[in-house]
C-alpha cells in the first residue's frame, strides 16, 4: 500500500461511529459537555465511564454521522472551545486521579474566523502545557486521521497508539504539497515523503503500538489492550509517571 492509500484509508468512514467506539471501550458512559466559558463543541465528545472495573475519562474527536453532525463538527475539526472542554475534563480527571483515554480522528483544528478570534492557538498551547504536568495517566489512540497540532493537542500521552488504518502527520498531504511544492495536486508524492504511516511512526518511536485492523471488532480489541496498560500506568507513583512522560517527549 502506498502512503497516500494509507491516507485515504485513514479518512474512510469506520465501520463504527465514535459513540459506538466509546461504548465498546467503556460501559455506562456519562457525557460531560461544554467548556464552561464559551460553548460546547460537538467535534469533541468527552465524559466518564467504566473501563472494566475502573472509572476513566474518555475524550474523543468525532466527525459526526449524519450530514448535520458532519457540518456541526466541521468534519471532525475542533474549535478552541472544544480544546478547552478537553482541558477541563483532563483537570477533572486529574482531581480524581482518573486515567484518561483520548481517541483521535481529526484532520486538524478548524481554520475558521470564530476559531481564530477565540484563540485557537492559545487553546492548543494551553493543552500542551497542561498535559506536561498532568498528574494522571493519559493514553492517546489515533484511530483515523491524526492531523497537525489539532491532533497533537490530544496526543501528548504516556503512550500513543495508532490503529493500523490510521495516519499521523505534521499537516495534511494536500497542505504539505501546497506549501512545499506550491501544488496541491502533488499530495500523493508529498504523502510518500512525510513518514505518516503507522509502520514508519512506530520505527521512529513516535508511537508505542500499532493496533491491527479489526473492522467492527476494533472497539473490543482496543478495550482489551487498554485494560492492562491503564492498570500499569495507574499503579505508578505520580512522580515516576511524570518523569517518564517528560523523558518520552524530551527524546525528540
Amino acid at each position: 500500500m502506498t502512503a497516500y492509500e494509507q491516507v485515504l484509508q485513514a479518512r474512510a468512514p469506520r465501520p463504527y461511529s465514535t459513540r459506538t467506539l466509546i461504548a465498546g471501550i467503556v460501559s455506562d458512559f456519562q457525557e460531560c459537555r461544554g467548556d464552561r466559558v464559551h460553548q460546547d463543541d460537538s467535534a469533541i465528545i468527552g465524559g466518564i465511564g467504566w473501563l472494566d472495573q475502573r472509572p476513566v475519562t474518555v475524550i474523543a474527536t468525532t466527525k459526526g454521522e449524519t450530514l448535520p453532525e458532519r457540518l456541526a463538527t466541521h468534519g471532525g475539526c475542533p474549535e478552541p472551545w472544544g480544546y478547552r472542554k478537553a482541558l477541563r475534563l483532563m483537570r477533572q480527571a486529574e482531581k480524581f486521579h482518573r486515567p484518561i483515554i483520548t481517541l483521535i480522528d481529526t484532520p486538524g483544528a478548524y481554520p475558521g474566523k470564530e476559531a481564530e478570534a477565540n484563540g485557537q492557538a492559545a487553546a492548543i498551547a494551553d493543552l500542551l502545557l497542561a498535559v506536561s504536568t498532568l498528574q494522571t495517566p493519559l493514553v492517546a489512540v489515533i484511530v483515523g486521521e491524526g492531523g497537525s497540532g489539532g491532533a497533537l493537542a490530544l496526543a501528548c500521552g504516556d503512550e500513543v497508539w495508532m490503529a493500523a488504518q490510521s495516519m499521523y502527520a505534521i499537516l495534511s498531504p494536500e497542505g504539505f504539497a501546497s506549501i512545499l511544492f506550491k501544488d496541491v495536486t502533488k499530495a500523493e508524492a508529498a504523502a510518500a515523503l512525510m513518514g505518516l504511516t503507522p509502520k514508519e511512526l512506530l520505527a521512529n518511536q513516535v508511537v508505542e503500538r500499532v493496533l491491527p485492523e479489526a473492522g467492527r471488532q476494533f472497539p473490543t480489541m482496543l478495550k482489551t489492550a487498554l485494560i492492562p496498560t491503564i492498570a500499569r500506568l495507574a499503579a505508578m507513583p505520580t512522580a515516576t509517571l511524570l518523569a517518564q512522560r517528560q523523558a518520552r517527549f524530551r527524546r525528540y
Binding site: 502545557l129 498535559v131 497540532g149 513518514g195 517527549f249 525528540y252
Partner: peptide, 17 residues
C-alpha cells in the same frame, strides 16, 4: 515532518517545568 510537530510538545514540557 512529524519530528517538528513533536518539538511543540517537547518545548512545552520545558516551559511547564
Amino acid at each position: 515532518g512529524i519530528q517538528s510537530l513533536m518539538q511543540m510538545a517537547k518545548v512545552s514540557q520545558a516551559v511547564a517545568h
